[in-house]
Each structure stands twice: as C-alpha cells, then as structure tokens.
Design a protein around this nucleic acid. Structure first.
Lengths: 204, 204
DNA sequence: TACCGATGCCTAATCGCCCTAGGCAACTGA
DNA sequence: TCAGTTGCCTAGGGCGATTAGGCATCGGTA
C-alpha cells in the first residue's frame, strides 16, 4: 500500500489552505485526512489533534504574515511605510482569510521548537509596528497606545470587511484609503494633540 | 412527566447566557438542552437547529445592544456623545462576550417576524453612529467613511482585548481613553484634513 | 367534569467528527 | 538481506446534530 508521505508540515499547510477556502471552522481533522486520501486516525501520528492543528496553522500564518510585512515597510518611512504596511496587512487578510482567522486566537499549546519561530512571527509583527512608529517620534507610553490604536483599526476594518459588515454602496477601497490617511494624520498629530496632558484639546 | 415549559425565547436567552459564560463556540444544542434538563431532540420543536439558535442569539444581542447604545448617547452631543457611545459599546462587549461574538457573524437565515425587530437592532446601531456623527458636520461620502473608521476602531479594540491581544503592562483603560480621544480628534479634523482633495495634508 | 386536539418532550436511530489502541506493512540503514 | 522504525490502517468508544415517530400533558370546550 502506497504511503501518502505526510509530515506535520504538509498537514499544517493543507489545513491552512483548507481554512482559506472554506473557513477556519470547517477545518476538521477528517477533512484534512480526506484531502490526502487517508483515514482520520492517520493524522494523529503527525499532529496531536484538532487544537494542535489549529495552533500550527496559526504559527504558520504568523510567520508568513511577518515575512510579508517586513519587506513591505523596508526602506520606507513615515506615511509611505504606514500605507505599505496597512495595505500588506489587508491584502494578506483578504487573500488568506482562514490563516488570518487562525492567527487571531491565542496559541495555548506549545507545539515544540517550531513554536519559537512561529510565535516569533506574531511578536515580529508587533515589533514592526513599533519600528514604523519610530518615525513619528513617539515615546512611551504614547507608542504603546498608538500601536494599540493602529492595530485596532487595521484589524477592525479587515475583520468587518471579511464578515461583510460594510453594506453601503460606497466603495470600500476609498474608505480604506481614508482610514489609513486618518491613521497617518493621527500619528502625526499625536504629540501635540493626544499626549498625556492635553487629552481634551481640539488642536486641529 | 413535568414539562419544562420551553419556548423559542427561553431557549435563545439560555443560549445567549451560555455563550457569555463559555464562549459562542461552546454553545451547543446539547448543552442548552442539558441546562433545561431536557433531551437534545426536544429543542428542535422550538428552534430549527444550531444555525437557527445562533442566529436568534445574534438578533437578541443586536436588539439589546441598540437598546443600550441609544440611551447612552441620548441628550449628548459631540465628544460627550462619542465617549458615552464608545464606553457603552465596550462595556457591552466585555459583559457579554458571547452575545457580542454572535452579533458579528452575518445572519443568513430568516427567523420569522422576530427577525425584523432583531435585524432592526443592527441597523439601529449603525443609525446611531450616523446620528452621533451629525454633530461633526460630515456630509456624504465623508460620513460613511467616518462611520466605517469608527466602527473599525471600536470593534478592533474590543476584539483584540477580548482575545487577550494586549500583552504590554501598560494599562488598557488608558489606551482605550486615548483611542476614543483620537477618534474625536479625527472626526473634528475630518473636513479640514481628510476630505476628498487634501487627503495627504498634515493640517494638524 | 370529561373529553379532544394540539403540542411538548421522549425514544430510537443515523451520521459525522474526535480521539485512542493496537497491528501490519512499507521504508531505512547497516 | 534483514532488523528496526515508523506510517497508515482497522476497530471501537464517545459526543453532538438532526430526523422520525410516539405518548403524555396541557388548554379549551361541551
């Protein structure tokens, strides 16, 4: 009987692709097994179970994501960097909805040494934002607040868009560009308008 | 044998409470049945199935949510209204994570006449934001873009917070206040800084 | 009060998926 | 060539979703 030649990596990659196609919730051990023409039980030699599989997809995605965002901002700064970062962020989420969704849930289970590389992906992503913001000259705790705001807006927009939350006929692309422009404006204004003291000012 | 006296409403409410306790994903027909001391099959007289149950929870939540947000902004305007709205939004999401999650997924299945009231909840929520923004004097398409941006940021923040996405020691409350302040600043600036033409200006 | 129809809840049964245990065959390297 | 490793399989238990069909319980009516 021919062997399918599975490995944890192959299985993870197949699961990730499946997630992008049919949604993360539809990713099932059985479905992945079917994809390889193999019985469900066979996957358990490579993956601990469903939770482990999902965690691996999350780590894979985080790595890919960071690998994509890094080059996007490399060599740019200020507004250019922000726009490139934001667009790369949204593009990835739209091209890989399942992977993106997988990334969102916290990875509880350690998955071995590969976890280091993968978890590094998530961290790397955050670091990238911090680095990007350096150009806007923010110190702590402003930088943390700004990163959180930026992450919230990017994630929120992408998440609402993915779920079909924008029904108005108005072009979503334009709304996105405006949103990114707004983020740039905000980051530029931050020190004057949003720093600790004058948090109620209208210095616009 | 005593009857449990179930109704679609009771079942929905129990499912919503369960979702808030253990997470939306853990809401199962069996679990809700157990809660009533009843067999799973019995629920199918009141609810079409799991998808229907989730849809009902979503509609219930949307209604409650709008009922909460309305009073929060009533009688306020400008920054006050925005802060009250945002806080009510976040408070609801934190107090009712399961209901909030249920609201996020689109309701595919019509659930009968009750759907009208419920779906009205979602619409009402959006209308509220539009109304609130009226104070900032935005016309179309600025208003739509601004609503989308505001929704994105609020949802994104709340979603990241719920998932434990904020790890830094820096107080999340402060970050939230800054984020809301930032939204206010943005809405105030919008016409000067973000309207169609001068989308690249730094008029801050 | 006695009856009757509606309907609430049950049993029985099927299916899909998760997961474990144990076995045999297909690869690997000596 | 052969022994050990390991990949995939069969067998089986458990749980959740869902359907079909039955009986008891309820509300209303004569």
């Amino acid at each position: 009987m021919r062997r399918a030649g599975l490995t944890a990596d192959l299985v993870t990659r197949a699961a990730a692709d499946l997630a992008d196609e049919v949604g993360l919730d539809a990713v099932t051990v059985s479905a992945v097994a079917r994809h390889f023409g193999v019985k469900d039980a066979s996957l358990y030699s490579h993956v601990r179970g469903l939770a482990d599989l999902r965690a691996r997809v999350a780590l894979l995605a985080a790595g890919e994501f960071a690998d994509l965002l890094g080059p996007a901002v490399a060599g740019r700064s200020g507004r250019d960097a922000l726009v490139a970062f934001a667009d790369a962020y949204r593009d990835y989420a739209r091209a890989h909805p399942g992977r993106y969704a997988a990334m969102q849930r916290p990875v509880d289970l350690p998955v071995g040494p590969a976890a280091v590389t993968g978890a590094g992906g998530a961290r790397r992503g955050i670091e990238l934002i911090y680095g990007m913001l350096r150009g806007y000259g923010l110190g702590e705790p402003d930088a943390t607040d700004a990163v959180r705001l930026l992450r919230s807006t990017l994630h929120g927009f992408v998440d609402l868009e993915r779920r079909g939350g924008f029904n108005d006929p108005r072009d979503v692309e334009s709304s996105w560009r405006r949103a990114v422009a707004a983020m740039h404006l905000l980051l530029s204004c931050w020190r004057e308008a949003l720093s600790e003291e004058n948090s109620s000012s209208e210095t616009c």
